[in-house]
């Protein structure tokens, strides 16, 4: 594809993929994450454990959204539905006494994959604003469906009697072990998304973001590629839902509220669209900001909203653009 190599969008795409495929930053982050629990224990600040655990878990969800939104350019506004589906799968199975992670994870992956395939097959036929709206509509459907789960608490949600076991052992009951299990899932998810994004499939997905007609004329089936990415992304978000339900020992329709989808978008934008590890960084920034502001005032959402507005107005294209400029790509 020598003709493409000279065009400006291709240069930007190369810069972006260089950003996505750099190894130093993700390794530094991994080392930090691995050391944080030890630091928390050493300093006696064990309440930080649940916060960093939520960062890791929502990091998986943000990473999954980054695959379709950042790499694929598909602005999904209903991604929280997948987190909720995974969480409810875990909640219902634990409630039924079939809550081993070896059962729950495959079940949640299956449920999310089916939901993603069905809703993706419909929504990916639309584009632009219509896609944003139809994903929002599907997210709302899932939200109201969970409210109708009367046997599982309806609007009030469901408290898990215990956390999932792993092959029969209650190892997730320990906060530190649970954190490292979550971290293991995050690393696996990151490696998977990175491999997908770097593959021929991922390049076609990325190309279709910038110019679907051209990618189609190369013989790729753009619809199927996007659907494939949508399903992978949904499954990973479902996985994060399983972990989230176990971490909170609680599930409720609020997990699927459309505001949650908005927050996920915000996370990957502050992290840098399409940079993958940036999505995890964005999740960390979001949750730390939330923690700091909520400790500051009960009306922290006001300050948070102001920050979001200022961020959009003054950074143009977010930190991703800044990072791209720093790495020598097109500004």
């Amino acid at each position: 594809m020598s003709a493409e190599a000279t065009s400006a969008p291709a240069a930007a795409a190369r810069a972006r993929s260089r950003l996505a495929l750099s190894t130093t930053a993700p390794l530094v982050m991994l080392a930090l994450f691995a050391l944080l629990p030890l630091l928390a224990i050493a300093t006696g600040q064990t309440h930080w454990l649940s916060l960093i655990n939520r960062i890791v878990i929502l990091g998986i969800a943000a990473l999954s959204l980054d695959l379709i939104l950042g790499v694929g350019g598909l602005v999904s506004f209903g991604h929280a539905a997948f987190i909720g589906l995974g969480a409810y799968t875990a909640g219902v199975m634990v409630d039924a006494g079939r809550g081993d992670l070896l059962l729950v994870v495959p079940a949640a992956l299956l449920v999310s994959a089916v939901f993603a395939a069905l809703t993706g097959a419909v929504s990916l036929r639309t584009k632009g604003v219509a896609f944003i709206m139809i994903t929002l509509a599907f997210g709302q459907m899932a939200f109201f469906f969970s409210q109708a789960l009367y046997a599982y608490g309806g609007d009030d949600g469901l408290t898990l009697p215990e956390r999932s076991t792993v092959a029969g052992f209650p190892i997730l009951a320990n906060k530190v072990t649970f954190f490292y299990v979550s971290l293991g899932f995050l690393v696996a998810a990151y490696l998977l998304v990175r491999a997908v994004a770097g593959s021929r499939f991922g390049r076609a997905l990325q190309g279709a973001r910038d110019n679907p007609v051209r990618v189609g004329s190369f013989g790729f089936d753009v619809f199927r590629i996007r659907l494939g990415a949508y399903v992978i992304s949904g499954m990973l978000a479902g996985l994060s839902g399983v972990l989230l339900a176990n971490q909170a020992e609680f599930v409720s329709p609020a997990y699927m509220a459309w505001q949650r989808s908005g927050e996920l978008i915000f996370m990957i934008i502050i992290g840098g669209l399409g940079s993958l590890w940036g999505a995890v960084l964005g999740a960390a920034a979001f949750l730390l900001l939330e923690e700091a502001l909520s400790g500051f005032s009960e009306h922290w959402k006001l300050g948070f909203g102001v920050l979001i507005v200022l961020f959009v107005l003054f950074t143009r294209g977010g930190l991703a653009d800044l990072a791209r400029r720093l790495t020598g790509g097109r500004a």
């Binding site: 505001q259 908005g262 934008i269 959402k301 006001l302 102001v306 920050l307 979001i308 507005v309 961020f311």
Partner: peptide, 29 residues
């Protein structure tokens, strides 16, 4: 606010107005 967002991507508009919702909901509270 809005005047500065007209030419921007839908993603920026979604995000900025999402932030505004947080501000006004909390403001009336």
């Amino acid at each position: 606010i809005f005047r500065h967002l007209y030419g921007r991507s839908h993603l920026d508009q979604v995000l900025a107005t999402f932030g505004l919702i947080l501000v006004l909901n909390e403001g009336v509270k």
